[in-house]
């Protein structure tokens, strides 16, 4: 028991165990013609992330350092940066795990650099939007005025659940060598999402999505460099999704893909053995 307490104390201690040098790539479009590296000495305690280090720099050393972050825990996907030669999430990267005395931080490549470490994610989000990342139903009237949920078994959920963990952090896009040389390429994130919605049993929009994805700048541009899967912080494995998407499209083009109707609606009431829910008290106004 006593030993356990000591261990917890050690883990939580804010004792400074190391000093590292942060080399931060800075660029202010209003002042600078070229980006340059600024250096900061950062004391490190156990459990300190690169984002913690940047916050230390901003609070105590240089208030002009710009970076984007929000949740601090790998959910929002805002703090993607090029850290020590790889795109990583600043909040999910432990300084001590990197194991270097100098930490080089640059903005994510393949996206325009607005300032310091902030990339312009607009084209990335536009590509995501292009692949129609939502459930498409033929019966739009029913979809707009739902009376119940759609049927889906846990097995059917597994067809796509891995790819639904995507947080749109654009690390895969920054790592992709094809995206580096082809600005129109949809990128690993968008293509993985195209697959995620295409195999969802509730979706009926595969044909619509094929029109976007089956394109010289779509999934066939991918040549399996695997960099996207290596950097994904959420285990989405975009490379897997893209190859499965290619297989699916080939099957469709050869006429071997079975046509299926989207999952049916679970009738809200009456359901055997289930009591009826009370009436809504808040009414949504149109």
């Amino acid at each position: 028991m006593a030993q356990k307490e000591i261990q917890i104390k050690e883990v939580l201690s804010d004792e400074i165990v190391k000093k590292v040098k942060f080399k931060v790539k800075k660029f202010d479009p209003e002042k600078d013609d070229k980006p340059y590296y600024a250096e900061y000495d950062v004391p490190v305690w156990r459990g300190m992330t690169v984002l913690d280090g940047l916050l230390y720099v901003k609070e105590d050393l240089d208030g002009t350092v710009n970076f984007r972050y929000s949740c601090r825990m790998g959910i929002c996907g805002s703090c993607g940066m090029f850290i020590n030669g790889k795109p990583r999430m600043a909040c999910m990267t432990q300084i001590l795990e990197l194991g270097t005395d100098v930490i080089e931080i640059a903005p994510l490549p393949n996206l325009d650099n607005i300032r310091d470490l902030v990339p312009d994610s607009t084209p990335f989000f536009e590509k995501h939007r292009k692949v129609k990342p939502y459930l498409i139903r033929q019966d739009v009237k029913e979809q707009e005025n739902p009376i119940g949920e759609y049927y889906q078994t846990p097995e059917e959920h597994e067809y796509y659940s891995q790819f639904s963990f995507c947080i749109k952090c654009s690390l895969c896009y920054a790592a992709c060598p094809t995206a580096a040389s082809d600005p129109e390429y949809l990128g690993p994130q968008a293509l993985a999402q195209a697959y995620r919605y295409s195999v969802d049993t509730r979706d009926e929009g595969f044909e619509e999505r094929v029109m976007v994805v089956d394109d010289p700048h779509g999934c066939w541009r991918c040549h399996y460099a695997g960099a996207c899967s290596e950097v994904c912080p959420k285990g989405v494995d975009p490379a897997k999704a893209i190859q499965l998407l290619k297989g699916l499209i080939l099957k469709y083009r050869l006429g071997l893909k079975k046509k299926r109707k989207g999952a049916g609606v679970i009738p809200a009431h009456p359901r055997p053995g289930v009591k009826k829910a009370p009436k809504r008290t808040v009414v949504q106004e149109d």
Binding site: N113, A180, S181
Partner: peptide, 21 residues
Amino acid sequence: ARPNRIGVKGWWTGGKYGVEK
């Protein structure tokens, strides 16, 4: 904003990755 796409150089630079790259 400053253009930051690596370009063709990204085929062989742009990070430390595995053998597939």
